[in-house]
C-alpha cells in the first residue's frame, strides 16, 4: 500500500490538509460568534444562542460523518458538476467542512470566555477615547485576548487532527498526496481504522504500522495540547 510508494508522507499531508480546511471553517465562524456573544449579544440572545451552539459540540462524531457522507458530499459533487468542476463524492472539502462545523463551538465558547475575562477597565479606556465598539474590539480587546484565542485555536487544531469518524465515513480511505480540496485524501486516523478494522495478527507489519501512526498522532496532539494549555494558563494568570 502506501508504505511501498510514498511512505507516510501523503497520510500526514492529508491529515494536516483536512485539519486546515476544518480550521478555515471553524476559525472565522467560531471566533466571530465568540466575539458577538461576548460583546454585542443581549443577555437574552446570549442565554439561548450559546447553549444552542454548544449542542454542536455534543453531537457524536459518527453523526457528523453520516451527515458529511450522505448530505454534504453528494451536495458538493452536484454543485461542482453544475459548475463544470470535477468533485469527488468523498472530497476533502466535505470531510474538512463538516469537521469545521463540529469545531465551531470549541472556538466560540473558549474565545467567548477569554474575551469576557478581559477587564472592563480596558473597554472603558477605549470607549472614553471615542472609539466605536468594533474599534475597541479589534484594537484593544482582541490583542489583549490573543493568547487565549490562540490557545483555543490550537485546541481546535488538535481536535481536528485526532478526529476519526468524519474522515473514515466521508473522505477517501486511500492516501493521496494532493492539495486539491475537491479530491479525496486520507488521514492518520482513517488509516489506523482501515488497517485495524476486522481481525488481524499482532505481529503483522501493517498492525505495527498502525500502532506507529497512533503513536505519532498521540505525540502531535500532546504537543499541541501542552502548548495550548500553557498559553491559556499564562493568559488567565495575567488577568486574574
Amino acid at each position: 500500500m502506501y508504505s511501498d510508494t510514498f511512505g507516510a508522507v501523503p497520510i500526514f499531508a492529508g491529515t494536516f490538509f483536512i485539519a486546515f480546511i476544518a480550521m478555515c471553517v471553524a476559525i472565522p465562524i467560531g471566533l466571530m460568534s465568540g466575539i458577538y456573544l461576548a460583546e454585542y449579544a443581549s443577555t437574552k440572545v446570549r442565554q439561548y444562542a450559546k447553549p444552542l451552539i454548544e449542542i454542536l459540540a455534543g453531537i457524536p462524531t459518527v453523526v457528523y460523518g453520516f451527515f458529511a457522507a450522505l448530505t454534504v458530499g453528494p451536495f458538493l459533487k452536484e454543485l461542482g458538476t453544475s459548475m463544470g468542476l470535477e468533485v469527488s463524492a468523498e472530497s476533502a472539502l466535505a470531510a474538512g467542512g463538516v469537521m469545521g462545523i463540529m469545531i465551531i463551538p470549541f472556538i466560540s465558547s473558549l474565545s467567548d470566555d477569554v474575551i469576557t475575562s478581559v477587564p472592563q477597565s480596558l473597554r472603558d479606556g477605549s470607549y472614553a477615547m471615542g472609539a466605536t465598539k468594533s474599534e475597541t474590539i479589534k484594537r484593544v480587546i482582541f490583542p489583549a485576548a490573543l493568547p487565549g484565542i490562540v490557545g483555543s485555536i490550537l485546541l481546535g487544531v488538535s481536535r481536528a487532527i485526532g478526529e476519526t469518524m468524519i474522515v473514515v465515513m466521508a473522505s477517501g480511505l486511500a492516501a493521496n498526496l494532493t492539495l486539491n480540496p475537491l479530491e479525496s485524501t486520507s488521514t492518520i486516523t482513517a488509516q489506523i481504522v482501515v488497517i485495524l478494522i476486522g481481525d488481524q495478527a499482532f505481529g503483522d507489519p501493517k498492525t505495527q504500522a498502525a500502532f506507529a501512526l497512533g503513536m505519532s498522532l498521540f505525540l502531535v496532539t500532546l504537543c499541541l495540547n501542552i502548548v495550548a494549555l500553557r498559553v491559556v494558563k499564562k493568559y488567565r494568570e495575567k488577568y486574574e
Partner: peptide
C-alpha cells in the same frame, strides 16, 4: 463627544500595547 471629553480612571488602565501605541490610539 468622547473625542472632546477625555477621561482618566481610578485605576490606571493602559492598553496591553506599547507606550507609543497607547498614546497614538486616539
Amino acid at each position: 463627544l468622547r473625542e472632546k471629553i477625555g477621561m482618566v480612571f481610578q485605576k490606571p488602565n493602559p492598553f496591553p500595547k506599547t507606550l507609543y501605541e497607547n498614546v497614538s490610539y486616539g
